[in-house]
Design a protein around this nucleic acid. Structure first.
Lengths: 207, 207
DNA sequence: TGTACATCAGTGAACGCGCGTTCACTGATGTAC
DNA sequence: TGTACATCAGTGAACGCGCGTTCACTGATGTAC
Protein backbone atom coordinates (compact mmCIF):
# COMPACT_ATOMS: atom_id res chain seq x y z
CA UNK A 1 0.00 0.00 0.00
CA UNK A 2 1.32 3.38 -0.95
CA UNK A 3 2.27 5.68 1.88
CA UNK A 4 0.28 8.67 0.88
CA UNK A 5 -2.70 7.00 -0.65
CA UNK A 6 -6.21 7.63 0.44
CA UNK A 7 -8.30 4.68 1.57
CA UNK A 8 -5.66 3.32 3.82
CA UNK A 9 -7.52 0.12 4.62
CA UNK A 10 -8.60 -0.75 8.12
CA UNK A 11 -8.21 2.63 9.72
CA UNK A 12 -10.98 1.90 12.18
CA UNK A 13 -9.21 -1.13 13.57
CA UNK A 14 -5.93 0.78 13.61
CA UNK A 15 -7.52 3.57 15.61
CA UNK A 16 -8.82 1.19 18.23
CA UNK A 17 -5.49 -0.54 18.45
CA UNK A 18 -3.58 2.72 18.75
CA UNK A 19 -6.03 3.91 21.39
CA UNK A 20 -5.43 0.77 23.41
CA UNK A 21 -1.69 1.23 23.18
CA UNK A 22 -1.86 4.83 24.32
CA UNK A 23 -4.25 3.91 27.10
CA UNK A 24 -1.97 1.20 28.40
CA UNK A 25 1.21 3.17 28.17
CA UNK A 26 0.17 6.68 29.10
CA UNK A 27 -3.27 6.51 30.61
CA UNK A 28 -6.65 7.89 29.80
CA UNK A 29 -5.69 11.55 29.91
CA UNK A 30 -3.32 11.04 26.99
CA UNK A 31 -6.01 9.38 24.91
CA UNK A 32 -7.28 12.23 22.78
CA UNK A 33 -8.75 12.05 19.32
CA UNK A 34 -5.89 14.08 17.94
CA UNK A 35 -3.30 11.89 19.57
CA UNK A 36 -4.80 8.67 18.29
CA UNK A 37 -5.09 10.10 14.80
CA UNK A 38 -1.47 11.23 14.89
CA UNK A 39 -0.40 7.77 15.95
CA UNK A 40 -2.24 6.13 13.06
CA UNK A 41 -0.91 8.70 10.60
CA UNK A 42 -4.20 10.28 9.77
CA UNK A 43 -5.68 13.70 10.23
CA UNK A 44 -7.87 14.20 13.32
CA UNK A 45 -11.04 14.78 11.36
CA UNK A 46 -10.62 11.41 9.64
CA UNK A 47 -11.48 9.78 12.94
CA UNK A 48 -15.02 11.04 12.54
CA UNK A 49 -15.51 8.87 9.51
CA UNK A 50 -15.34 5.90 11.85
CA UNK A 51 -16.60 7.14 15.19
CA UNK A 52 -19.22 9.70 16.03
CA UNK A 53 -17.25 11.10 18.91
CA UNK A 54 -14.35 10.52 21.22
CA UNK A 55 -16.61 8.69 23.60
CA UNK A 56 -17.60 6.24 20.90
CA UNK A 57 -13.99 5.44 20.27
CA UNK A 58 -13.50 4.83 23.99
CA UNK A 59 -16.56 2.62 24.04
CA UNK A 60 -15.08 0.53 21.25
CA UNK A 61 -11.88 0.13 23.24
CA UNK A 62 -13.81 -0.92 26.32
CA UNK A 63 -15.90 -3.38 24.35
CA UNK A 64 -12.69 -4.93 23.12
CA UNK A 65 -11.65 -5.45 26.73
CA UNK A 66 -14.82 -7.34 27.50
CA UNK A 67 -13.87 -9.98 25.00
CA UNK A 68 -11.15 -10.92 27.43
CA UNK A 69 -13.68 -11.28 30.22
CA UNK A 70 -15.71 -13.55 28.00
CA UNK A 71 -12.78 -15.84 27.62
CA UNK A 72 -12.35 -16.03 31.37
CA UNK A 73 -15.92 -17.21 31.79
CA UNK A 74 -15.45 -19.67 28.94
CA UNK A 75 -12.66 -21.29 30.85
CA UNK A 76 -14.73 -21.30 34.02
CA UNK A 77 -17.49 -23.20 32.25
CA UNK A 78 -15.34 -25.63 30.33
CA UNK A 79 -12.51 -26.06 32.81
CA UNK A 80 -11.82 -29.12 34.86
CA UNK A 81 -11.81 -29.55 38.62
CA UNK A 82 -14.50 -29.07 41.21
CA UNK A 83 -16.35 -25.75 41.41
CA UNK A 84 -14.17 -24.24 44.10
CA UNK A 85 -11.00 -25.09 42.19
CA UNK A 86 -12.40 -23.44 39.09
CA UNK A 87 -13.37 -20.40 41.04
CA UNK A 88 -9.87 -20.07 42.41
CA UNK A 89 -8.49 -20.25 38.92
CA UNK A 90 -10.94 -17.62 37.73
CA UNK A 91 -9.83 -15.35 40.54
CA UNK A 92 -6.19 -15.60 39.54
CA UNK A 93 -6.85 -15.02 35.88
CA UNK A 94 -9.11 -12.10 36.65
CA UNK A 95 -6.55 -10.30 38.75
CA UNK A 96 -3.78 -11.06 36.29
CA UNK A 97 -5.81 -9.39 33.58
CA UNK A 98 -6.42 -6.33 35.74
CA UNK A 99 -2.76 -6.22 36.71
CA UNK A 100 -1.60 -6.38 33.11
CA UNK A 101 -4.09 -3.83 31.78
CA UNK A 102 -4.87 -1.43 34.60
CA UNK A 103 -5.97 1.48 32.45
CA UNK A 104 -8.14 -0.66 30.24
CA UNK A 105 -9.65 -2.25 33.31
CA UNK A 106 -10.47 1.14 34.77
CA UNK A 107 -12.02 2.31 31.53
CA UNK A 108 -14.18 -0.79 31.24
CA UNK A 109 -15.74 -0.27 34.61
CA UNK A 110 -16.10 3.46 34.97
CA UNK A 111 -19.34 4.87 33.68
CA UNK A 112 -17.83 8.24 34.43
CA UNK A 113 -15.84 8.09 31.23
CA UNK A 114 -18.07 6.07 28.98
CA UNK A 115 -21.74 6.17 29.86
CA UNK A 116 -22.89 2.59 29.49
CA UNK A 117 -26.46 3.54 28.96
CA UNK A 118 -25.47 5.35 25.80
CA UNK A 119 -23.59 2.41 24.36
CA UNK A 120 -25.88 -0.60 24.34
CA UNK A 121 -23.32 -2.94 22.88
CA UNK A 122 -21.08 -2.16 25.83
CA UNK A 123 -23.78 -2.66 28.41
CA UNK A 124 -24.63 -5.92 26.79
CA UNK A 125 -21.04 -7.07 26.93
CA UNK A 126 -20.94 -6.35 30.65
CA UNK A 127 -24.26 -8.07 31.19
CA UNK A 128 -23.15 -11.16 29.34
CA UNK A 129 -20.11 -11.67 31.52
CA UNK A 130 -22.08 -11.38 34.73
CA UNK A 131 -24.96 -13.40 33.38
CA UNK A 132 -22.84 -16.31 32.37
CA UNK A 133 -21.14 -16.43 35.74
CA UNK A 134 -24.53 -16.42 37.39
CA UNK A 135 -25.88 -19.12 35.14
CA UNK A 136 -22.89 -21.32 35.78
CA UNK A 137 -23.78 -21.00 39.42
CA UNK A 138 -27.50 -21.19 39.57
CA UNK A 139 -28.27 -23.05 36.38
CA UNK A 140 -29.46 -21.53 33.11
CA UNK A 141 -33.12 -21.78 33.96
CA UNK A 142 -32.82 -19.58 36.99
CA UNK A 143 -31.30 -16.48 35.49
CA UNK A 144 -33.47 -13.53 34.61
CA UNK A 145 -30.84 -10.94 33.70
CA UNK A 146 -31.85 -8.38 36.32
CA UNK A 147 -28.64 -8.80 38.27
CA UNK A 148 -30.53 -8.29 41.49
CA UNK A 149 -28.42 -8.24 44.62
CA UNK A 150 -30.98 -10.24 46.50
CA UNK A 151 -31.46 -12.94 43.92
CA UNK A 152 -27.87 -13.79 43.15
CA UNK A 153 -25.84 -13.02 46.25
CA UNK A 154 -23.14 -15.56 45.50
CA UNK A 155 -22.31 -14.44 41.99
CA UNK A 156 -22.60 -10.83 43.09
CA UNK A 157 -20.20 -11.40 45.96
CA UNK A 158 -17.63 -13.06 43.76
CA UNK A 159 -17.82 -10.20 41.31
CA UNK A 160 -17.62 -7.61 44.07
CA UNK A 161 -14.66 -9.06 45.90
CA UNK A 162 -12.69 -9.54 42.70
CA UNK A 163 -13.50 -6.09 41.44
CA UNK A 164 -12.62 -4.53 44.79
CA UNK A 165 -9.35 -6.40 45.04
CA UNK A 166 -8.45 -5.55 41.44
CA UNK A 167 -9.02 -1.85 41.93
CA UNK A 168 -7.25 -1.66 45.25
CA UNK A 169 -4.28 -3.31 43.61
CA UNK A 170 -4.37 -1.04 40.58
CA UNK A 171 -4.72 2.12 42.63
CA UNK A 172 -1.90 1.12 44.91
CA UNK A 173 -4.12 0.88 47.97
CA UNK A 174 -2.66 -2.43 48.96
CA UNK A 175 0.91 -3.58 49.05
CA UNK A 176 0.79 -5.78 45.97
CA UNK A 177 2.98 -5.04 43.00
CA UNK A 178 0.90 -5.68 39.86
CA UNK A 179 4.05 -6.56 37.93
CA UNK A 180 4.87 -9.42 40.29
CA UNK A 181 2.77 -12.31 39.08
CA UNK A 182 3.28 -14.36 42.23
CA UNK A 183 2.06 -11.52 44.42
CA UNK A 184 -1.02 -11.06 42.26
CA UNK A 185 -1.84 -14.74 42.54
CA UNK A 186 -1.34 -14.48 46.28
CA UNK A 187 -3.86 -11.68 46.47
CA UNK A 188 -6.35 -13.68 44.41
CA UNK A 189 -5.91 -16.75 46.60
CA UNK A 190 -6.31 -14.69 49.75
CA UNK A 191 -9.59 -13.02 48.86
CA UNK A 192 -11.29 -15.90 47.06
CA UNK A 193 -10.12 -18.28 49.78
CA UNK A 194 -11.62 -16.09 52.47
CA UNK A 195 -14.85 -15.79 50.53
CA UNK A 196 -15.11 -19.55 50.07
CA UNK A 197 -14.37 -20.37 53.70
CA UNK A 198 -16.31 -17.45 55.12
CA UNK A 199 -15.51 -15.24 58.08
CA UNK A 200 -17.58 -17.18 60.57
CA UNK A 201 -14.71 -19.19 62.05
CA UNK A 202 -12.56 -16.15 62.87
CA UNK A 203 -15.53 -14.09 63.95
CA UNK A 204 -16.72 -16.60 66.51
CA UNK A 205 -13.15 -16.88 67.70
CA UNK A 206 -13.30 -13.18 68.42
CA UNK A 207 -16.62 -13.35 70.24
CA UNK B 1 -17.36 41.64 56.46
CA UNK B 2 -17.29 44.04 53.56
CA UNK B 3 -18.08 42.60 50.18
CA UNK B 4 -15.05 43.85 48.33
CA UNK B 5 -12.51 43.66 51.09
CA UNK B 6 -9.30 41.78 50.78
CA UNK B 7 -8.53 39.14 53.38
CA UNK B 8 -11.87 37.52 53.13
CA UNK B 9 -11.33 35.16 56.02
CA UNK B 10 -11.32 31.42 55.56
CA UNK B 11 -10.97 31.29 51.82
CA UNK B 12 -9.13 27.99 52.03
CA UNK B 13 -11.99 26.29 53.80
CA UNK B 14 -14.46 27.92 51.42
CA UNK B 15 -12.54 26.60 48.45
CA UNK B 16 -12.61 23.05 49.76
CA UNK B 17 -16.28 23.30 50.53
CA UNK B 18 -17.12 24.72 47.11
CA UNK B 19 -15.02 22.03 45.47
CA UNK B 20 -16.94 19.34 47.33
CA UNK B 21 -20.24 20.84 46.25
CA UNK B 22 -19.22 21.00 42.61
CA UNK B 23 -17.85 17.48 42.78
CA UNK B 24 -21.06 16.11 44.22
CA UNK B 25 -23.37 17.95 41.91
CA UNK B 26 -21.53 17.97 38.61
CA UNK B 27 -18.69 15.53 38.84
CA UNK B 28 -14.96 15.68 38.62
CA UNK B 29 -14.77 17.11 35.12
CA UNK B 30 -16.51 20.27 36.29
CA UNK B 31 -14.11 20.73 39.16
CA UNK B 32 -11.61 23.20 37.75
CA UNK B 33 -9.58 25.77 39.62
CA UNK B 34 -11.33 28.55 37.79
CA UNK B 35 -14.75 27.17 38.55
CA UNK B 36 -14.07 26.76 42.25
CA UNK B 37 -12.65 30.26 42.45
CA UNK B 38 -15.67 31.68 40.69
CA UNK B 39 -17.96 29.91 43.13
CA UNK B 40 -16.16 31.36 46.12
CA UNK B 41 -16.10 34.82 44.57
CA UNK B 42 -12.38 35.05 44.18
CA UNK B 43 -10.05 35.37 41.23
CA UNK B 44 -8.49 32.09 39.96
CA UNK B 45 -4.96 33.06 40.89
CA UNK B 46 -6.01 33.58 44.50
CA UNK B 47 -6.40 29.82 44.78
CA UNK B 48 -2.65 29.53 44.54
CA UNK B 49 -2.23 31.33 47.82
CA UNK B 50 -3.78 28.31 49.47
CA UNK B 51 -2.92 25.38 47.24
CA UNK B 52 0.13 24.69 45.16
CA UNK B 53 -1.87 23.22 42.32
CA UNK B 54 -5.24 21.85 41.32
CA UNK B 55 -4.17 18.42 42.44
CA UNK B 56 -3.43 19.69 45.92
CA UNK B 57 -6.91 21.09 46.16
CA UNK B 58 -8.32 17.73 45.10
CA UNK B 59 -6.15 16.00 47.66
CA UNK B 60 -7.60 18.23 50.36
CA UNK B 61 -11.11 17.32 49.27
CA UNK B 62 -10.26 13.62 49.33
CA UNK B 63 -8.64 13.92 52.75
CA UNK B 64 -11.86 15.46 53.99
CA UNK B 65 -13.72 12.40 52.78
CA UNK B 66 -11.51 10.11 54.78
CA UNK B 67 -12.67 11.74 57.96
CA UNK B 68 -15.99 10.10 57.26
CA UNK B 69 -14.32 6.71 56.96
CA UNK B 70 -12.68 7.32 60.30
CA UNK B 71 -16.03 7.78 61.91
CA UNK B 72 -17.24 4.50 60.47
CA UNK B 73 -14.37 2.65 62.06
CA UNK B 74 -14.97 4.51 65.32
CA UNK B 75 -18.45 3.12 65.42
CA UNK B 76 -17.18 -0.34 64.58
CA UNK B 77 -14.82 -0.23 67.55
CA UNK B 78 -17.16 1.33 70.05
CA UNK B 79 -20.44 -0.16 68.85
CA UNK B 80 -22.42 -2.82 70.61
CA UNK B 81 -23.33 -6.29 69.48
CA UNK B 82 -21.20 -9.27 68.54
CA UNK B 83 -18.52 -8.92 65.87
CA UNK B 84 -20.64 -10.14 63.01
CA UNK B 85 -23.45 -7.76 63.88
CA UNK B 86 -21.01 -4.88 63.97
CA UNK B 87 -19.58 -5.90 60.67
CA UNK B 88 -23.01 -5.94 59.11
CA UNK B 89 -23.65 -2.46 60.38
CA UNK B 90 -20.32 -1.26 59.04
CA UNK B 91 -21.24 -2.67 55.63
CA UNK B 92 -24.49 -0.77 55.52
CA UNK B 93 -22.96 2.50 56.62
CA UNK B 94 -20.13 2.10 54.17
CA UNK B 95 -22.39 1.62 51.18
CA UNK B 96 -24.70 4.41 52.28
CA UNK B 97 -21.74 6.75 52.31
CA UNK B 98 -20.69 5.67 48.84
CA UNK B 99 -24.28 5.96 47.60
CA UNK B 100 -24.67 9.46 48.98
CA UNK B 101 -21.30 10.75 47.75
CA UNK B 102 -20.42 8.82 44.63
CA UNK B 103 -18.08 11.36 43.12
CA UNK B 104 -16.25 11.96 46.37
CA UNK B 105 -15.97 8.22 46.84
CA UNK B 106 -14.45 7.82 43.39
CA UNK B 107 -12.01 10.63 43.98
CA UNK B 108 -10.87 9.18 47.30
CA UNK B 109 -9.94 5.87 45.78
CA UNK B 110 -8.55 6.71 42.38
CA UNK B 111 -4.85 7.34 42.29
CA UNK B 112 -5.40 8.26 38.68
CA UNK B 113 -6.63 11.67 39.72
CA UNK B 114 -4.72 12.31 42.88
CA UNK B 115 -1.44 10.46 43.17
CA UNK B 116 -1.38 9.23 46.76
CA UNK B 117 2.32 8.94 46.86
CA UNK B 118 2.60 12.65 46.32
CA UNK B 119 0.25 13.52 49.14
CA UNK B 120 1.48 11.85 52.30
CA UNK B 121 -1.34 13.13 54.47
CA UNK B 122 -3.76 11.45 52.11
CA UNK B 123 -1.92 8.18 52.04
CA UNK B 124 -1.80 8.27 55.79
CA UNK B 125 -5.53 8.84 56.04
CA UNK B 126 -6.16 5.79 53.87
CA UNK B 127 -3.68 3.72 55.86
CA UNK B 128 -5.28 4.68 59.13
CA UNK B 129 -8.72 3.47 58.08
CA UNK B 130 -7.45 0.12 56.92
CA UNK B 131 -5.10 -0.20 59.84
CA UNK B 132 -7.76 0.34 62.43
CA UNK B 133 -10.07 -2.19 60.83
CA UNK B 134 -7.23 -4.68 60.84
CA UNK B 135 -6.36 -3.98 64.43
CA UNK B 136 -9.92 -4.40 65.50
CA UNK B 137 -9.73 -7.78 63.93
CA UNK B 138 -6.36 -9.12 64.81
CA UNK B 139 -5.58 -7.12 67.91
CA UNK B 140 -3.35 -4.06 68.11
CA UNK B 141 -0.18 -6.00 68.75
CA UNK B 142 -0.40 -7.88 65.49
CA UNK B 143 -0.58 -5.03 63.01
CA UNK B 144 2.52 -3.92 61.16
CA UNK B 145 1.03 -1.45 58.68
CA UNK B 146 2.22 -3.22 55.55
CA UNK B 147 -1.30 -4.13 54.50
CA UNK B 148 -0.05 -7.42 53.17
CA UNK B 149 -2.62 -9.54 51.40
CA UNK B 150 -1.22 -12.68 52.93
CA UNK B 151 -1.05 -11.44 56.49
CA UNK B 152 -4.51 -9.94 56.86
CA UNK B 153 -6.78 -11.84 54.50
CA UNK B 154 -9.92 -11.21 56.52
CA UNK B 155 -9.64 -7.45 56.78
CA UNK B 156 -8.50 -7.31 53.17
CA UNK B 157 -11.48 -9.31 52.02
CA UNK B 158 -13.94 -7.14 53.88
CA UNK B 159 -12.38 -4.06 52.34
CA UNK B 160 -12.34 -5.59 48.88
CA UNK B 161 -15.91 -6.81 48.84
CA UNK B 162 -17.25 -3.52 50.16
CA UNK B 163 -15.19 -1.48 47.74
CA UNK B 164 -16.21 -3.68 44.84
CA UNK B 165 -19.89 -3.53 45.73
CA UNK B 166 -19.73 0.22 46.25
CA UNK B 167 -18.18 0.86 42.88
CA UNK B 168 -20.44 -1.49 41.00
CA UNK B 169 -23.37 0.31 42.52
CA UNK B 170 -21.98 3.75 41.74
CA UNK B 171 -21.11 2.87 38.18
CA UNK B 172 -24.51 1.34 37.58
CA UNK B 173 -23.12 -2.13 37.01
CA UNK B 174 -25.71 -3.69 39.28
CA UNK B 175 -29.38 -3.07 39.53
CA UNK B 176 -29.32 -1.09 42.76
CA UNK B 177 -30.53 2.49 42.85
CA UNK B 178 -28.16 4.44 45.12
CA UNK B 179 -30.97 6.81 46.04
CA UNK B 180 -33.07 4.00 47.46
CA UNK B 181 -31.76 3.45 50.97
CA UNK B 182 -33.48 0.12 51.38
CA UNK B 183 -31.93 -1.24 48.23
CA UNK B 184 -28.48 -0.10 49.32
CA UNK B 185 -28.89 -1.85 52.66
CA UNK B 186 -30.03 -4.93 50.80
CA UNK B 187 -26.87 -4.93 48.76
CA UNK B 188 -24.76 -4.51 51.88
CA UNK B 189 -26.53 -7.36 53.63
CA UNK B 190 -26.16 -9.61 50.60
CA UNK B 191 -22.42 -9.24 50.15
CA UNK B 192 -21.36 -9.12 53.78
CA UNK B 193 -23.71 -11.98 54.56
CA UNK B 194 -22.19 -14.10 51.84
CA UNK B 195 -18.71 -13.25 53.01
CA UNK B 196 -19.51 -14.18 56.60
CA UNK B 197 -21.20 -17.46 55.73
CA UNK B 198 -18.79 -18.36 52.95
CA UNK B 199 -19.46 -19.98 49.59
CA UNK B 200 -18.64 -23.50 50.74
CA UNK B 201 -22.22 -24.61 51.36
CA UNK B 202 -23.48 -23.67 47.89
CA UNK B 203 -20.33 -24.86 46.21
CA UNK B 204 -20.52 -28.36 47.66
CA UNK B 205 -24.16 -28.40 46.72
CA UNK B 206 -23.06 -27.85 43.13
CA UNK B 207 -20.40 -30.56 43.22
C1' DT C 1 -1.71 57.18 70.74
C1' DG C 2 0.41 57.67 66.20
C1' DT C 3 3.28 56.26 62.63
C1' DA C 4 6.32 53.26 59.61
C1' DC C 5 6.60 49.14 57.67
C1' DA C 6 6.54 44.11 56.78
C1' DT C 7 3.44 40.64 55.61
C1' DC C 8 -0.38 38.55 53.83
C1' DA C 9 -3.99 37.62 50.59
C1' DG C 10 -6.14 39.45 47.30
C1' DT C 11 -6.48 41.51 41.89
C1' DG C 12 -6.29 41.62 36.79
C1' DA C 13 -4.25 40.62 32.69
C1' DA C 14 -1.97 37.52 30.10
C1' DC C 15 0.64 33.11 28.59
C1' DG C 16 0.43 29.02 25.72
C1' DC C 17 -1.91 24.85 25.33
C1' DG C 18 -4.38 20.96 23.33
C1' DC C 19 -8.77 19.87 22.96
C1' DG C 20 -13.30 18.08 20.24
C1' DT C 21 -15.51 19.08 16.37
C1' DT C 22 -17.09 21.20 11.77
C1' DC C 23 -16.63 22.24 7.04
C1' DA C 24 -15.81 22.46 2.23
C1' DC C 25 -12.71 20.07 -0.35
C1' DT C 26 -10.51 16.19 -3.20
C1' DG C 27 -8.29 12.03 -4.57
C1' DA C 28 -8.98 6.98 -5.15
C1' DT C 29 -11.95 3.26 -6.02
C1' DG C 30 -15.74 0.32 -7.81
C1' DT C 31 -19.68 -0.10 -10.79
C1' DA C 32 -22.91 0.40 -14.75
C1' DC C 33 -23.25 0.70 -19.42
C1' DT D 1 -12.17 -2.34 -23.01
C1' DG D 2 -13.28 2.45 -22.10
C1' DT D 3 -15.73 6.01 -19.98
C1' DA D 4 -18.96 8.51 -16.67
C1' DC D 5 -20.12 8.89 -12.29
C1' DA D 6 -21.43 7.92 -7.41
C1' DT D 7 -19.41 6.83 -3.18
C1' DC D 8 -16.18 6.54 0.22
C1' DA D 9 -12.47 8.00 3.13
C1' DG D 10 -9.25 10.88 3.29
C1' DT D 11 -7.25 16.30 3.76
C1' DG D 12 -6.38 20.92 5.69
C1' DA D 13 -7.73 24.84 7.84
C1' DA D 14 -10.31 26.80 11.16
C1' DC D 15 -13.79 27.42 15.16
C1' DG D 16 -14.28 28.57 20.02
C1' DC D 17 -13.30 26.79 24.35
C1' DG D 18 -11.77 26.54 29.16
C1' DC D 19 -7.93 25.13 31.14
C1' DG D 20 -3.70 25.57 34.75
C1' DT D 21 -0.54 28.66 35.90
C1' DT D 22 2.52 32.99 36.20
C1' DC D 23 3.39 37.69 37.13
C1' DA D 24 3.69 42.28 38.74
C1' DC D 25 0.61 44.71 41.32
C1' DT D 26 -1.99 46.63 45.53
C1' DG D 27 -5.03 47.12 49.37
C1' DA D 28 -5.80 45.68 54.23
C1' DT D 29 -4.00 44.23 58.49
C1' DG D 30 -1.00 43.58 62.57
C1' DT D 31 3.17 44.81 64.97
C1' DA D 32 7.18 47.46 66.79
C1' DC D 33 8.61 51.57 68.56
Amino acid sequence: MKKNSYHKGNVRADLIQAAEAILNEEGLAALSVRRVAREVGVVPSAVYNHFESREELLAAVAADGYQYMERLVDRLERGSGDPSQRLRRLAREYLQFAAANPNLYRLMFSSDVVAYRLHPELEQAADTSFGRLTQWWYGPGNYDSTRSAVKYPNALSVWSIMHGAALQMIEGLIQVDPRHKGAVDGLADAVIGTLIRGLMPTLSEKA
